[in-house]
Nucleic acid binder design. Structure first.
Lengths: 138, 138
DNA sequence: TACCAAAAGTTGTATATGCAACTTTATAGA
DNA sequence: TCTATAAAGTTGCATATACAACTTTTGGTA
């Protein structure tokens, strides 16, 4: 077997996904940094805005993240005064949280369009379909 | 504005990518666990097999991970006796490392085909093209 | 109401990763 | 050869995440 026999085959799709995820996450984080939040925080704020009263476990399922990670993220939002203090009855934004969610949404729209262009509609649509297929209850 | 006005728009492509990356990474890790290595370690072993003498910084660029993360991953491989001890002259596999790389490659082939089927050729090809476009020097 | 089991949420621990500062190695030019 | 600079590699630190154990809440039933 010659030296390069394995080369063409050694990529892992997982690696590709992770690499792209890192790059794109960086872009989102840069954009949301202007609002003083991370990509993850902005995403949560926007989702809670859209689905007030949503439970952590539902969000965790939608976003496919650990409930423990969700718990900590939510605690952070509350510490910043963006959530009401009745967390365990469902998640609701405060005034400040609502304002911030709207500001994030504006930035999101611009950036998402950019990224959509860069990645190409096929890939994005493919990813979207996959996500929907893989999430039990969106 | 009604409550669900923002809902359709709150997903972030970054989130989709990260979610899928988590899911798929889990699959690879499960498969490689039978060889006692993680997905990341297996990937490195296979790449060093294919490109003996490669430098850490080149690998880091190819995989788009931090050079610091690469340094630590490489140290781990060496601690396990899979790399020769001339790390700074380029990376070379030991006998044990070579054997393991080949075993990993067998598993990789099976799993990659499975994942390829599940995700669909369009998405995988799309991701592959993107990766190649985004990596400065493959 | 009282109790039990399941679901939801929290916390501890280990590991992974990004960023920045630092050290070591390589390279070009006097 | 010697030196200055850049490149490569390492380490420290902060944060993110997975997994597991634990606590709290919920919902059904006697």
């Amino acid at each position: 077997m010659h030296v390069y026999g394995m080369e063409a085959g050694t990529y892992c799709i997982a690696g590709r996904l992770r690499m792209l995820a890192r790059l794109i996450t960086g872009r989102y984080n840069e954009a949301f940094a202007a609002e003083g939040v991370t990509f993850a925080q902005a995403g949560l704020l926007m989702r809670i805005f859209a689905q007030p009263g949503i439970r952590q476990n539902v969000l965790a399922r939608q976003l496919q993240i650990e409930k423990s990670a969700m718990s900590r993220d939510v605690q952070l939002l509350q510490k910043n005064g963006w959530l009401t203090d009745n967390r365990r009855k469902g998640l609701f934004l405060t005034e400040a949280g609502t304002i911030l969610a709207k500001r994030c949404h504006k930035r999101w729209k611009v950036l998402n369009a950019q990224v959509h262009d860069e990645l190409g509609a096929e890939v994005v649509d493919g990813l979207t379909l996959l996500s929907e297929k893989m999430i039990p209850i969106p």
